[in-house]
């Protein structure tokens, strides 16, 4: 068949092209350049910032980045080799400046917060467009959105039972979709090249995956925590706290009361430790993913990073599932009847 052979030819051609790009990346990247003894590579050394950078208002950003107010504007990065050499020394001192985090009480719109807003808008658009027509016989997009909702609803129902699953569904589904959209949207190319520059280098990206800002997972973890405790108290009343303060046996001077009290204390601790584990699990995964993307791009440019993107798609999905399903599991533990 002519079309079959044409498709095969195209496939082979694309494969060869990718292989060539991979080789070129290996040669032009830092690794290849060092091995060949040619220099430092063509891709500038990336700077890794752990805390998010403020982007608005401009005055906070300028002070944070060490920029003069006149120079700042959004533009794509230009590979400007001239400025790079001369500013090496200055960078060292400014490195301190633009990686120091905001003071704990100062408000600024950070790039991570901005990308959370972006994800929010995209999520709302996605669901509103999907549920706009409300026809009983759905089209393709409506069908997709409904399938997602139904799958999430069934998952909630399978963990908590149909009735409680419906009550928990909105919060759990929102956590899931918010985390997922934040992770996946951050893989879009313009997250990497939109930014505020100084001397031709991006000092602060306009958008940065919200998961790399500790405040985002922390906020979700707090939501999850409050949600779980709320339903625990609501379904057991004040008896819910008996699980944590099991001092009944101790007051009756039974020896086993000591163990009960200690177990209760552990329960109490674990309840709060969840916040920390939730926070750092998501933060760690998202941050590691972003660093990995940047570093692979630096070491072997062009094609090699695609595998990392594939990996990141998976990691984003897994983290969203984990965050939502752990919330569900903790919720089911909190609302289930305690054994004594």
């Amino acid at each position: 068949m002519p079309s079959g052979s044409a498709a095969r030819n195209l496939f082979v051609l694309a494969g060869l092209g990718l292989l060539a790009l991979l080789l070129a990346g290996a040669v032009m990247g830092v690794i290849g350049q060092k091995i060949l003894g040619l220099g430092d590579g063509y891709v500038p050394r990336p700077e890794i910032h752990l805390p998010p950078q403020p982007v608005f208002p401009a005055s906070v950003r300028d002070r944070h980045l060490g920029l003069t107010p006149a120079k700042d504007h959004v533009e794509e990065p230009q590979k400007d080799a001239d400025h790079k050499e001369g500013t090496a020394a200055k960078e060292a001192q400014e490195g301190e400046a633009h990686s120091t985090p905001l003071p704990i009480m100062q408000f600024a719109v950070t790039n991570t917060l901005l990308s959370a807003w972006f994800a929010t808008v995209m999520l709302v658009l996605f669901f509103v467009l999907g549920s706009r027509k409300k026809s009983l016989v759905p089209g393709r997009f409506q069908s997709l959105v409904e399938t997602l909702i139904e799958a999430a609803l069934n998952f909630c129902g399978s963990v908590l039972g149909p009735e409680m699953g419906r009550k928990a569904f909105p919060v759990v589904a929102t956590i899931f979709f918010f985390v997922l959209f934040n992770a996946w949207l951050a893989l879009l190319p313009f997250y990497q090249f939109l930014g505020f520059t100084k001397d031709g280098e991006i000092k602060a990206h306009l958008l940065r995956s919200a998961g790399t800002d500790l405040n985002f997972p922390l906020a979700l973890a707090l939501i999850s925590f409050v949600f779980v405790e709320y339903w625990g108290i609501r379904s057991h009343g004040l008896g819910y706290f008996k699980k944590f303060f099991a001092i009944g046996g101790l007051l009756r001077l039974r020896p086993s009361g000591l163990i009960d009290a200690f177990v209760g204390f552990l329960e109490l601790i674990s309840e709060f430790v969840r916040i920390v584990s939730f926070t750092f699990r998501l933060f760690g995964n998202m941050t590691a993913g972003e660093i990995l993307v940047v570093m692979i791009t630096f070491l072997v440019p062009f094609v090699a990073v695609e595998f990392v993107f594939g990996l990141e798609l998976l990691v984003g999905l897994i983290q969203a599932v984990i965050f939502a399903s752990l919330t569900l599991v903790f919720l089911s533990v909190a609302v289930s009847h305690q054994e004594h």
Binding site: P101, L102, T112, L113, N215, A219
Partner: peptide, 12 residues
């Protein structure tokens, strides 16, 4: 670590 109270509230 980058914990910032206004950001946290904004995320919430």
């Amino acid at each position: 670590l980058g914990i910032n109270l206004p950001s946290l509230i904004a995320y919430l």
